[in-house]
Simulated assay, not measured.
Amino acid sequence: MRLTLRRRRYKYETEKAYTGWVIRFLQLFPGRSLEELGEVEVRTFLNDLVANESGGVAASTLGQAKSALLFLFKETLGRELNFIEHSQATKPKKLPVVLTIDEVKRVRKHVTGTRRLMFDLMYGSGLRHKECRRLRIKDLQIDEGTILVRNGKGEKDRVTVLPGRVRQEVIEQIEVCRVRHLQDLEMGEGEVFLPDALKRKYPAESRKFRWQWLFPSPRTRMDPRSGRYWRHHVSEDFLSKSFAKALEASGVLKNAVPHTLRHSFATHLLEGGSDIRTVQELMGHADVSTTMIYLHVMNRPGLSVKSPLDQLEATDDDEQ
């Protein structure tokens, strides 16, 4: 199954998630071979997830589990499954959490160093958390004032704005990376992961500075797929833990996470009068309807709705 996933160019995160669900599925039926398992057992497993004592899994989680098992049976084993009687779970439509400009300032004040630069790029460029961590030196087009986002959601590339306010900080971060890379090369390291078959086609590219991460990990580690030791980008916890502490210290009570900065980027652009099609391009949305959700959470200029209760109280005061 891992080989099939890799041959189909699935991302490593998907590989981990899918194989994890298959392991959980097989653990529910110990001692039974795959030939004995089928539609009934898949339904049992999915029903068990829904009827879990802790309240069941989210709709997206249930959908992922189902997709993993379908991939196992249909794509890996070549078996056609009959109707599983588990239609796609309805995912509730929720408005994204968005911070006001003042709240962004309050949270940002408690984030420092490299994490502050990541914070600024996510809020100032609309990057996803993963996209920010995966920025490479060559993706920063400083003279043009743009960022080339590679392999975003849906394996799509896009161009977004590089905030002028962080231009000098980005240049300084690049120089920090340059010094570290030279040290790695002197130690016989300095190799970095290359996408797809680039490593095979261009063996020397993996040691070139332009391919290095803008936010490299403080230490080298083994890549789980290739077995090579190299310096990867920082982990998800690098910013998320600091963000949670900054949120608490700021006194902002919204249920915000680093991805909230991307939502805030889009909302504040629309509030500032940016064209929705432009925002769609910067966000990398395939459909403008996805971008339009931010119209429902923005503070629209000129919109002044007065509660009838406030009007009632005003009338009572007049009568008194």
Rank of each mutant, 00 (worst) to 15 (best):
Q27K: 13
F45L: 00
S67P: 00
R128E: 10
A68Q: 07
V107T: 15
N52G: 15
P30L: 03
G126E: 14
E15Q: 12
Y123K: 03
A65C: 01
L26N: 05
R32F: 04
G56A: 04
L117C: 04
V97C: 09
S87N: 05
E85F: 11
V22N: 08
R32T: 08
R43W: 01
R116Q: 07
R106E: 10
Q27V: 02
A17T: 12
L28E: 15
H86M: 15
Y18P: 00
M118S: 04
T61N: 07
Y18V: 05
E85W: 05
L70V: 10
G63E: 02
Q141G: 02
R106T: 04
A89R: 06
K66M: 09
L117T: 05
R24Q: 15
K93A: 00
A58I: 02
D48I: 00
K130Q: 14
K138L: 08
A68G: 06
V98G: 08
K130E: 15
I84Y: 03
K93Q: 07
C132G: 04
A65P: 00
P30A: 03
F73I: 01
T44R: 11
R24N: 13
V111P: 00
E15A: 07
V98Y: 09
R79A: 00
I101K: 15
L46Q: 06
L99H: 12
